[in-house]
């Protein structure tokens, strides 16, 4: 075992980590935005639109992320969609994450008491105002734990981007290990690193959750 090489490859790994964080943050934000849009459209749109969206959700949730990336990155050029690795990875994360986020938002909206919305309608609020003032604030708070949870799951999915040559952490680690033949150390350190990262953000996430929901659930431990 020799962990000295990590020092030499430090800057490269750091750049990779930067890309990982960037892909994760942007991918999560885009996927969440698209998911929210899907959940809202699904709530209000005509039935045939809802069917199309439901089909989209089933297709994306029923296929592996890796295969979706391959379709996008290698298949895309055949229908004129030429993307570099990083944009393709970001678009892939957005598409992959959106149906999961949509379902989370949908169940968050379902948790909003119907009486609240009826009361808002009774006092003559416009439908859009109801969404903005009642549905979103209440629905988002009850969706929060699941949102945090899925965002954490997405950090782990970012390593799959290395397979379509997005230069994130995993990709740099693979490059380092093919140059130095230190496959075991490199992957072991990567594993420990991810463990620490996921544990840290899930702890932060739980703290955030408690802070935002503290006025809601007093019986929660």
């Amino acid at each position: 075992m020799d962990f000295g090489i990590l020092q030499q490859y430090g800057p490269m790994l750091l750049r990779g980590f930067g890309n990982t964080v960037l892909c994760w943050a942007l991918g999560t934000i885009f996927a969440m935005a698209l998911g929210l849009l899907i959940a809202l459209v699904q709530r209000y749109a005509a039935r045939w639109v809802r069917w199309i969206i439901q089909a989209y959700i089933e297709i994306i949730r029923g296929t592996p992320f890796l295969v979706q990336l391959f379709v996008l990155y290698y298949g895309g050029p055949l229908i004129g969609l030429r993307l570099d690795a990083v944009p393709a990875g970001l678009l892939g994360l957005t598409i992959y994450g959106s149906p999961y986020f949509a379902e989370i938002f949908r169940s968050g909206f379902r948790a909003v008491p119907v009486g609240q919305i009826e009361a808002a309608r009774a006092i003559g609020m416009a439908e859009l105002t109801i969404v903005r003032r009642i549905l979103l604030p209440l629905g988002l708070v009850s969706a929060l734990p699941a949102l945090v949870n899925f965002s954490i799951i997405l950090t782990k999915e970012t390593v799959i981007l290395s397979i379509i040559t997005v230069p994130e952490l995993m990709y740099q680690v693979q490059r380092m290990s093919t140059e130095t033949f230190r496959y075991l150390e490199a992957n072991l350190v990567l594993a420990l690193f991810f463990w620490a990262l996921v544990e840290t953000i899930s702890r932060l996430g739980r703290r955030l959750e408690r802070r935002i929901t503290r006025h809601l659930l007093t019986e929660r431990t």
Binding site: K156, Y183, L184, N187, L190, A191, F194, W195, V198
Partner: peptide
């Protein structure tokens, strides 16, 4: 549980794949 749920499966696969011969 915490380790296996915290580390991406792809990394686990490679760790395991390279550890066995060692």
């Amino acid at each position: 549980v915490s380790f296996l749920r915290g580390v991406p499966l792809l990394v686990q696969l490679l760790v395991f794949y390279y550890t066995l011969p060692v």
